Amino acid sequence: MTKDKSKVFLFIDDDPVPIAELDTPIVFDLDTQKLADGEHVLKIVSHSPAGREGIRKIPFTVANGPAIRIEGLKDKDVVDGTLSLMINAYDKGNQKSFIINGSETPQTIPFWIWVIIILFTGWAVYYEITSANIQ
């Protein structure tokens, strides 16, 4: 009996044991919850009915854990003294319902917004004073 379908073997990273051995065509659900957060490689090895082999490697990044946001320190900053950091970590939940608590990171108001607010307030006070003197 001859095979008329190709067979694929799926590997994660450098693991010598495949996570799946499938006849093609197939739809496969890769559960990333079982993988550690970080960079991984999906290696697909195919065997054709004629005995030929093909390999494809697909790098991907898993980010199942809570997202972490930090304000007050950026990559490769040169720092000195005491730093005031705002740190937030929030999860995606079960992805069937949206939970608003803790899902957004509060941020400080940028310097340029403060400048606009001060300039507008100064202009409003000046306008009130000058318009009151005319009457």
Rank of each mutant, 00 (worst) to 15 (best):
Ile19Tyr: 01
Ile19Cys: 07
Ile19Ala: 05
Ile19Lys: 05
Ala20Leu: 08
Ala20Glu: 12
Glu21Ser: 15
Glu21Arg: 11
Asp23Trp: 15
Asp23Ala: 15
Thr24Cys: 11
Pro25Trp: 06
Pro25Asp: 01
Pro25Lys: 05
Pro25Ser: 02
Ile26Thr: 13
Ile26Ala: 14
Val27Trp: 02
Val27Ala: 11
Asp29Lys: 13
Asp29Pro: 03
Asp31Gly: 07
Asp31His: 09
Thr32Ile: 11
Thr32Phe: 00
Gln33His: 14
Gln33Met: 14
Lys34Ile: 03
Leu35His: 00
Ala36Tyr: 10
Ala36Lys: 15
Asp37Asn: 12
Gly38Lys: 11
Gly38His: 10
Gly38Ile: 09
Glu39Leu: 13
His40Lys: 10
His40Ala: 12
Val41His: 03
Val41Ala: 00
Val41Cys: 04
Leu42Asn: 04
Leu42Glu: 08
Leu42Val: 11
Leu42Gly: 02
Lys43Glu: 05
Lys43Ser: 03
Val45Arg: 03
His47Ile: 09
His47Val: 10
Ser48Asp: 09
Ser48Met: 00
Ser48Asn: 04
Pro49Val: 00
Gly51Val: 14
Gly51Tyr: 11
Gly51Ile: 14
Arg52Cys: 06
Glu53Gly: 00
Glu53Trp: 01
Glu53Leu: 04
Glu53Cys: 06
Gly54Pro: 06
Gly54Arg: 04
Ile55Leu: 07
Ile55Val: 14
Ile55Asn: 08
Arg56Gly: 02
Ile58His: 10
Pro59Leu: 09
